[in-house]
Simulated assay, not measured.
Amino acid sequence: MVHFVGAGCGAPDLITLRGHRLLQQADQIIYAGSLVNPALLEAAKSGCVIRNSAQMTLEQVLESIREAEAIGQTTVRLHTGDPSLYGAVREQIDALQSEGISFDITPGVSAFSGAAAALGHLGGAEYTLPGVSQTLIVTRMAGRTPVPESESIERLAAHRASMAVYLSAGMAGELSDRLICGGYSADTPAAIVYKASWPDEKTILCTVGQLPVCAQEHGIQKTALILIGEYLRGTSSHYERSKLYDPSFSTGFREASQ
């Protein structure tokens, strides 16, 4: 049996209870060593085989899984954040299905959740503020993995929705230019969140136009999320009160009182 587990965004106590239990029970853990906090591996039982997939190809990962399966052992494939986002998980699952190897998936706390929580000096970031934005766009710049033209930064920026940009901190200058070209103004609030929830976490508030300078000043080239949108403005006067808790608004659980 193979368990794909989301490790969460960094802090070892942000993994799910299920994920932690599976780590304790695993005979083999194959973890994304370039991004997963190694403190999570302290949960492994004595004798557990631990492999760093940052040093492995897909074929080597699959061979390690086959070896464990052949002797009736379980494998935890430990992915950063949540496996469904930039986790290269589908290609592994397809291979397992083709060989009749059972698997399941345990979700994790993604970096966009960790990054929002890290902005505590704003009271935390709420991507879906009433009257500001009700849409969160999760995307990335093209690198070795291309991005479809229909999902270019310029086209997505035209919506002026809340945005969380992964895997792009090293291209902050180009990202800034393309965001502005697409529709965000240069003074749109932005943030760079480096290693959200890790001990060396950094949060930098800036604007879209200031992104490249701030990234350079703080030496941030990777392992950071870039957030964009008016939800980062940080004042209570620019958004509307939620109707869910408004005393003048009836819900299925209470009548309006005003």
Rank of each mutant, 00 (worst) to 15 (best):
V132E: 00
S102Q: 11
G123T: 11
E99Q: 15
E154D: 07
P130T: 06
P107L: 01
A111D: 02
A164M: 03
A111L: 09
A157N: 01
I153Q: 00
Q97P: 13
Q134K: 14
A158K: 05
D104F: 08
G131E: 09
H159R: 03
Q97T: 11
S98C: 14
G114F: 02
G114P: 14
I105P: 11
L129A: 09
S150K: 04
V109S: 00
A157P: 12
D94Q: 13
R160D: 07
A158L: 08
R140E: 05
I93E: 06
A164T: 05
S152R: 00
L85D: 04
F103T: 04
D94H: 14
P130K: 05
T145W: 10
E149W: 03
E154S: 08
A115M: 03
T139A: 11
F112V: 14
H159S: 13
E154I: 05
E126N: 15
G143E: 10
S84G: 13
G120M: 10
V132S: 04
Q97D: 15
R144P: 15
A164Y: 00
A164H: 00
I153V: 13
F103M: 07
A164F: 01
E91W: 12
G100T: 10
Q92V: 10
G108D: 00
D82I: 00
Y127V: 11
S110D: 03
G120F: 08
E149R: 04
E151C: 12
L85V: 15
I105H: 06
E149C: 07
A161E: 03
P83Q: 00
Q92R: 02
A95V: 12
Y127F: 15
L129Y: 12
E126G: 14
S162Q: 01
P130W: 03
A164V: 04
I93G: 08
E154N: 05
Q92L: 12
E154A: 05
P130C: 07
T135E: 12
H159G: 15
A157L: 06
L96D: 06
H121R: 11
P146F: 05
A158F: 09
A115L: 04
G131K: 02
P148I: 01
Q134I: 10
T135G: 08
A118V: 11
I105L: 12
T128S: 14
A164N: 01
I105T: 09
H159D: 09
R160T: 11
F112M: 10
I101M: 04
L129E: 05
S162A: 15
E126W: 13
D104E: 10
P107V: 01
S102D: 11
A117N: 09
S84H: 07
T139K: 00
H159V: 12
A125K: 02
V138A: 02
D94K: 06
G143H: 07
I137E: 02
I105E: 03
E126L: 14
P130Y: 07
A125G: 09
A118I: 11
T139Q: 03
